[in-house]
């Protein structure tokens, strides 16, 4: 199953104008965490918030919809969100916690829930895990290389970054620049090259732009809880949806990219095994 176990796949976007303005694509993560917070499904959420340096995110505990909206948008470098989960419970007193995680972070969280060897009273407090599609992640210095060296832009001028249509994009106030994705190859962290999960197969629900038109996201609901919270949000009018069969580029692209990641990284795994290097998968 190239997209993991799931219940439903739809194309969706937030109906909130404020979220549409700041979100990466359909505003699913922002909109859903804000909805869950307002409906008291969660009391707080760990998100990748703005850090001290431009485009260097820091995990933060958001306790209000405004704080979640302030953390909207994709960051293409590390934000060790999992680390903040314990702090959110211990220091912020959150009993019902939400978070957003890339596939590998989802694995760390799920392993902790199944085998909480040294982690007490946290596993059952995670009520909503929104997964995001992820092909690879970049060290911060790699991003600097793309932006400062390859594009000649001051990182402080950058308002948004994006990956799509085979390119890495940078938006400044009056310019849109891009480099072919090929030029970013070799700059990703190598831990990504053994990962077989593109669509966060173990999240409560997963989302990302791939498969949907600009300004929309493809949402995959997986667990009962994930599906039920997303349906509640749709009924409450937080999201509008479209049938995947009616959107371009459609589900085939998502399947294709997921299969590509699995095939390519399985080769890396096999090669590592041949060399006698450890592989957890």
């Amino acid at each position: 199953m190239v997209l993991g176990t799931y219940k439903e796949i739809v194309s969706a976007r937030s109906t909130d104008k404020q979220i549409q303005k700041v979100s990466q694509d359909g505003g699913i993560v922002t909109g859903l965490l804000a909805f869950a917070l307002e409906e008291k499904i969660i009391e707080g959420a760990v998100v990748a918030g703005p850090g001290e340096d431009f485009w260097k995110p820091e995990p933060m505990v958001a306790m209000s919809a405004d704080e979640i909206i302030a953390a909207a948008g994709t960051k293409y470098t590390f934000s060790p969100n999992v680390m903040m989960l314990k702090k959110a419970v211990r220091q912020y007193g959150i009993e019902k916690l939400g978070t957003v995680a890339i596939p590998c972070q989802t694995m760390g969280i799920r392993k902790m829930q199944s085998y909480p060897f040294g982690v007490r009273f946290l596993a059952d407090k995670i009520k909503l895990l929104v997964g995001i599609y992820c092909m690879e992640n970049f060290p911060f210095a790699s991003l600097e290389t793309f932006i400062s060296e390859k594009m000649g832009v001051n990182p402080e001028m950058v308002e948004k970054m994006d990956i799509g249509k085979g390119k890495f994009w940078v938006y400044t106030q009056d310019d849109v620049l891009s480099i072919p994705l090929k030029e970013t190859h070799g700059y990703e962290q190598s831990g990504c090259n053994v990962c077989l999960d593109y669509v966060a197969e173990l999240a409560d629900l997963s989302t990302g732009s791939v498969g949907s038109p600009d300004g929309w996201s493809t949402v995959i609901t997986r667990t009962d809880d994930g599906n039920s919270i997303f349906q509640q949000a749709i009924e409450a009018g937080a999201f509008e949806t479209k049938d995947m069969a009616n959107v371009k580029p459609g589900l085939d692209l998502l399947k294709k990219l997921s299969a590509q990641k699995k095939d390519k990284n399985q080769k890396t795994i096999d090669k590592r095994k041949e060399m006698g290097l450890p592989v957890p998968f």
Binding site: F78, Q105, I109, G191, V279
Partner: peptide, 8 residues
């Protein structure tokens, strides 16, 4: 070459 910086 296995770390992905998840913070677990």
């Amino acid at each position: 070459a296995l770390c992905i910086g998840c913070g677990t």
